[in-house]
Design a protein around this nucleic acid. Structure first.
Lengths: 349, 349
DNA sequence: GTGACAATCTGTAACGTTTCAGTATATAGC
DNA sequence: GCTATATACTGAAACGTTACAGATTGTCAC
């Protein structure tokens, strides 16, 4: 053993975290061989491969992320880009849990990249792409003509959108079928004899605003009901504003006898507004609302709900991004989640 | 210009992301000098320093994270460790936003490290420490004798806990003063003439269970009220279970005339249970509840609430970890958030 | 004019990984 | 017994950064 080899041995047997060098020393092989053996390269003998993998498992070898990243550019990171002001409540945690679930047994880490209202939504995306900080990106609050999706498509970085775009460009997405939700809600209300319906929609700039409106309009004409315009507020407005507007609306001559709400928090405000006007839920007016956790029926048992599963959305989004990274065609990584039935409250046994 | 230098120039002028080499070529300096100039090292001439920094800003140089991490071991990552099953609702998003806010203008990234109920809570921590994946860690669901805190203290990795421990060991934390919350709640209920109080507490294993119970007990004897035991459920139980237990309790002879609830979601269940038993909030019984978003008063206007700000908690926790990483003494990075007054509902104007 | 010293800058090596371009050995063809 | 070829392995270089150990000036004391 010459001086050079001795040095190597000394270093490799050090008690730090094991590296390829450690493994190479322990197995008596070269680093290259060890590296290739660990990734099942065909030009490594079957026995050597097993031997290396056994030792690696025994001493708990884990590839150094920085080393891999520096050499290959692969970050093993998925970034979830979130708006710090709009994305309220359980949405976010459910999506995060959904994503986590899927990447749990992959080498991927989840990083959360926030941006605030004051910023250009493109800023965080640019940062991620320019610094090569992630292998894949998940965005929400998707717009029909979304500059973020366009930008990432141009740069060829894998991503998935929560919600669809409408630019004639193909990319992975997961969406809830808000057209079906709105249409079903209208039909259900019509079935209860409601004829004058108001819709509290998502903010105009988001794609699913259009979907929701379309489903609402189509079903209205289908059942022969009419719309009471309620577009001075959206689910992005404050509780106070929605409540006030609802109360105003309900005090008018031609008030709605049915509401459809695209978000649970907003529904609380709508109900408050209805009651401010001295009216009663279930008697004077019915409300169908989306919800992401089963809490609205505790709030008012008369509420009619449709569930939207954000945890599932997170999982689907993660699967899509990983799929794209793995080389699948973006067009095959699109999914739409159908709403269940409109649920009336059932008393627990 | 010899062959060697020419190569360097060719590479450096390449259109990829700028590196120290690019800067070195542009300024005519050595990489070492550039590196040191960028971090304001004293042995670099003032003018050179300014020049390098100017060029760096102009071409949008950003240090390569993998390079830094490989060389120095510094990850520039803070990990937020979350339980995927317990941590429900807005808690998580608020904490994330709070953390994000603080690390926004630092080089730090936030990674979310999840673990599920089935796992040992120590698992994710071990993973982070062994793989050196983060410079700092934030944990929640803190226990009086918390193996995670002990483990990280032993390894010397900076962390902060959401909630305190009780092991005689010093580490940064942020906590809500649940002793004060429970005590104030009792006093408020006593002020309303309530005498038989029930407490829906946090799960026993968590530190703030003890704090809450202590505040409850101390204030009970202070005001001369009595406890109606309600410890078959905690805020970790399902809505259905809490509801059922509450209804059972309220049908008993010696039922409580006041409730204190440590979580908003659980409060919905308590109220449902009360109403299941045919009793009325505000008349037969009063409920004081913690909430993290201003929604409970919409649910039932008779509810009495105390706000807990999780966004603030997230921000404080991030500040603590960064402080520790920056070399501050752990003992100086502890904070306790005092609850505000118990709020009764005020009708909006 | 020489030596000492400070000020300013530089090359080399190393962190852990993968890729490139090999080398050594065994097997087969003839 | 020779070349060709496949099999199994290997060292060196590179990714971008920082730390170490110099190197080159210029200034000053004497």
């Amino acid at each position: 053993m010459n001086r050079h080899q001795k040095e190597k041995a000394d270093e490799a047997s050090g008690q730090g975290r094991p590296t390829l060098k450690t493994l190479a020393f322990m197995t008596g092989l070269g680093v290259t061989t060890v590296s290739r053996a660990l990734k099942d390269a065909p030009e490594i003998g079957a026995e050597t491969r097993r031997r290396v993998q056994l030792v690696a498992k025994q001493i708990g070898y884990r590839p150094n992320r920085a080393g891999v990243r520096l050499r290959t550019g692969k970050t093993n990171v998925i970034s979830l880009v979130l708006n710090t002001e709009h994305e309220i409540m359980s949405f976010v945690s459910d999506i995060i849990y959904g994503v986590s679930e899927v990447i749990a047994d992959t080498p991927y880490h989840l990083i959360v990249t926030p941006y605030s209202r004051s910023q250009d939504p493109l800023d965080p995306i640019r940062y991620l792409v320019e610094t090569g900080s992630a292998d894949g990106v998940i965005i929400s609050r998707t717009q029909p003509n979304d500059p973020r999706a366009r930008y990432m498509l141009e740069r060829g970085i894998p991503f998935a959108t929560h919600g669809r775009t409408d630019m004639g460009l193909i990319h992975p997405y997961h969406d809830f079928d808000n057209y079906a939700f709105a249409a079903e809600a209208v039909r259900h209300l019509a079935g209860l004899g409601r004829r004058r319906l108001a819709l509290l929609a998502p903010p105009v700039e988001l794609t699913y605003h259009g979907h929701t409106l379309a489903g609402f309009a189509d079903a209205l004409s289908e059942v022969g009901a009419s719309e009471i315009p309620f577009n001075t507020v959206s689910i992005d407005h404050s509780i106070e504003q929605i409540r006030m507007r609802t109360a105003q609306l309900m005090r008018r001559e031609n008030r709605p006898d049915g509401f459809i709400s695209s978000a649970a928090a907003a529904t609380l405000a709508i109900v408050a507004g209805i009651e401010d006007a001295g009216l009663k839920l279930g008697r004077d007016v019915d409300v169908v609302s989306k919800q992401s956790s089963e809490l609205l029926h505790l709030f008012r048992s008369e509420l009619l709900v449709v569930n939207e599963n954000f945890r599932l959305a997170g999982a689907e989004l993660a699967r899509s991004v990983l799929g794209w990274i793995g080389g699948a065609a973006p067009g095959t990584l699109q999914s739409l989640s159908e709403p269940g039935e409109v649920q009336a409250y059932r008393r627990p046994a």
